[in-house]
């Protein structure tokens, strides 16, 4: 039973004895006034317009370009040439396959390599936590192209990495799997996957860390109090609670990796080219814009489907 004469809490209504300079504005609520109702639209307008013109509209131009035919000299015209899509898949099918294969392997490796580091920073680092986080971001401070070129040195023929792997007969195993050949690492699929994994690893670690860091440590204690082995604590408590980070990290790794052409170009060979290489070549060297547009559309469609299915399966609809 509450007394009906209790005064309203401060904030919901101004005390009557205080002279208010703008009477009515705090009482009626901001949503009711038409000028205020438009505020979010004005705030959103510059960014929204920019993205509408330079992100959404280009896709319509690209759609129209992808069904054009003609040549650079005579100009391209829309002829509803859907054969562009069939040609792209027929010519560059292997490139698409390699893109998604390499990107999937790199994503999996990023998860396997990145999880222990994210876990260490979140639970075992103590006062070194912020320093370790800086060290994860630090590689970004050097241009990624320069760092990718450094892998050419690290993996070079006759270099220490090749020497060690050779003496351990690891290269024989990877050659059997078709990942390397001729006792080299450079210009092999393994080098491309290694480069992709390296380049996108921080994009896996940071979301993993931010979701691990939020886990309440008393949950770990509770699990241990109930006689769970460390492995069980991880499987039943830690890993499920870090799922948002796993989903965000895998998406942030897989999407850019599947469109990448830098690692394939710098560390690979003509036999390791990905779909990005094909799009780049058609757009910038061959100047066959319809072919580039068709491939870019196929890549986008596949990624949208994969991402949607993945997000539905993992039950994370809202990431932003």
């Amino acid at each position: 039973m509450t007394a009906p004469s209790v005064p309203a809490p401060a904030g919901t209504a101004p005390p009557p004895d205080r002279p208010s300079p703008e009477t009515g504005s705090s009482g009626g609520g901001p949503e009711t006034r038409p000028r205020k109702r438009l505020t979010p639209y004005w705030l959103l307008l510059p960014a929204g317009l920019w993205l509408a013109v330079f992100f959404v509209a280009p896709f319509f131009y690209q759609a129209s370009t992808s069904v054009q035919s003609g040549s650079l000299e005579e100009g391209f015209r829309v002829t509803w040439a859907f054969s562009n899509y069939a040609d792209a898949l027929a010519t560059y099918g292997p490139h698409f396959l390699r893109s998604f294969l390499y990107a999937s392997i790199a994503t999996l490796l990023c998860l396997l390599i990145g999880y222990p580091l994210a876990y260490t920073i979140a639970f075992r680092a103590g006062r070194w936590r912020s320093l370790l986080l800086v060290m994860v971001i630090a590689p970004f401070f050097t241009s990624f192209l320069i760092r990718t070129l450094a892998w050419k040195t690290i993996l070079s023929d006759g270099g220490p990495v090749v020497g060690v792997l050779e003496s351990l007969h690891v290269l024989d195993v990877t050659a059997l799997l078709g990942l390397t050949g001729d006792d080299r690492l450079l210009a092999t699929p393994l080098a491309v996957v290694c480069g992709l994994t390296y380049n996108f690893l921080p994009f896996m670690i940071l979301p993993l860390y931010s979701s691990l860091e939020r886990i309440d440590l008393s949950l770990h204690e509770a699990a241990r109090d109930l006689y769970a082995e460390p492995a069980t604590v991880f499987r039943k408590v830690t890993f499920p609670l870090s799922m948002p980070g796993v989903v965000a990290g895998t998406l942030l790794t897989f999407i850019p990796a599947s469109g990448d052409y830098i690692n394939a170009q710098l560390l690979g060979s003509p036999n390791t080219q990905m779909v990005g290489n094909a799009i780049q070549k058609q757009f910038l060297n061959v100047l066959d814009y319809p072919a580039a547009a068709a491939m870019s559309f196929i890549l986008m469609a596949i990624i949208l489907v994969v991402v949607t299915l993945y997000m539905r399966r993992t039950g994370t609809e809202e990431l932003v």
Binding site: F59, S258, G259, F283, A293, S296, V307
Partner: peptide, 15 residues
């Protein structure tokens, strides 16, 4: 953020 750079780059270039 969910679009590979090569797709965004090529489509803006087309525009």
């Amino acid at each position: 953020m969910a679009m590979p750079e090569v797709v965004m780059g090529a489509s803006l270039g087309t525009l």
